[in-house]
Design a protein around this nucleic acid. Sequence first.
DNA 1: AAAAGGTATTATGAATTCATAATTCCGGCA
DNA 2: TGCCGGAATTATGAATTCATAATACCTTTT
Lengths: 227, 227
Amino acid sequence: MSKIQHRNLYREVADRIRELIEHGELPPGERISEKQLCETFGVSRTPLREALKVLASEGLVELLPNRGARVMQLTVKMVKDTYDLMGALEGLSGELACQQISDEGIVAICQLHEQMLEHYRNREMQPYFAVNRQIHESILAAANNEVLEEMYNNLSYRVKRVRYSKKMTDAFWRQAVNDHEMMIVALKARDGKRLGQILRDHLCHKLEVVTLAGVIEDDELINAANG
Amino acid sequence: MSKIQHRNLYREVADRIRELIEHGELPPGERISEKQLCETFGVSRTPLREALKVLASEGLVELLPNRGARVMQLTVKMVKDTYDLMGALEGLSGELACQQISDEGIVAICQLHEQMLEHYRNREMQPYFAVNRQIHESILAAANNEVLEEMYNNLSYRVKRVRYSKKMTDAFWRQAVNDHEMMIVALKARDGKRLGQILRDHLCHKLEVVTLAGVIEDDELINAANG
DNA sequence: AAAAGGTATTATGAATTCATAATTCCGGCA
DNA sequence: TGCCGGAATTATGAATTCATAATACCTTTT
């Protein structure tokens, strides 16, 4: 017996468009044709337009009155602002996690940390990032704050595309691992203030913005392109 | 010549519903009748439904599949989580503001601070809150981070209703003013870390949650009411 | 009288239709 | 040839219509 999934159409559509944007199939600044997307998804314009409005409120899409929608064009400043924000949220997640996490939770994160170190020693970049990500997600989950999680995920989605283009120099990498060592110490001691501070300043974010400078166009260029 | 405002209908409607929720004309948990709201606003269901979906993604409204919408019912935990988050965002705003604000901006905030102190000495509660709010808004604006501002405003909207029911004991009030004194010192010194820390820990938020315990129903009660 | 079942009504979800703004295309004109 | 203006086309915004799920109401049965 197959499970009848009664999810709303507009959610389905919004999810699909999010994916298209994330994977660059809808490039930033691209004008979104309602008709074309309707045909692609095989739905009418009503749920599609609902989805677009939701995506606009999520900051993934830009609605131009009477002129349709376009994929949000990120500027360097917007990416920087978003990363600053994500840093603050990660800081909070660390602070809260220290209060809320179970001893088993700490052990689990320590194990992930050891895995990550192993990948670092072997210079296995992709596995390293995967485990790194798991650690941050574990801390976020341990914070036990759904509003925080929702906001973080939203921000994460906005800049997901640009993450793919980050570069990791060896010096930055070592510094990142060093940050993580300190994080583990603070977590074991359940020192929320300390873990929060480390996470806020964790260089991952700043790093990526720096290397992005050449990738994403500048404010001026964007404005010129819009005119 | 009258200005022809060609704002989209769904935005207009969303704004109106936000107000209705804020002022309690649509009480939390209340089932929202599409037909009734359509008649109230004089629009068709299409823009209304678009507005509801946007409000749902903002966390103000809850959509039940095939069963319409209801005003989001806040639990104590949700309010606490939201305030924790707002504290973190205020902290970031302080940190950034110290880097970005002009000398004139600092002077302006100091003047607001003096006004606030005057209201405190005279125990003028409403004017005190008004100026207090202006100070926090000024710092947020000085941070020059639109993503941060947008997110803070969203969170603020979610808990706006409950703010009306806060109570200020004298001890808390004195502590709040004391926090503000320290904030001004940090701001003048452009000590971002310090200002951020003060703002994150600024008791306003925690205070309100404590006094709210009796006002907002508990998780269990909410769940029971939903079933 | 209370419970169960079935029909009628109502409300929601989505497609379609209608109105209007934006864009394109084409011809006239300098 | 290049530019301006208006008709034709297309796309968007919103209302209406249609299909279906949820709810209310009423009958029937025990």
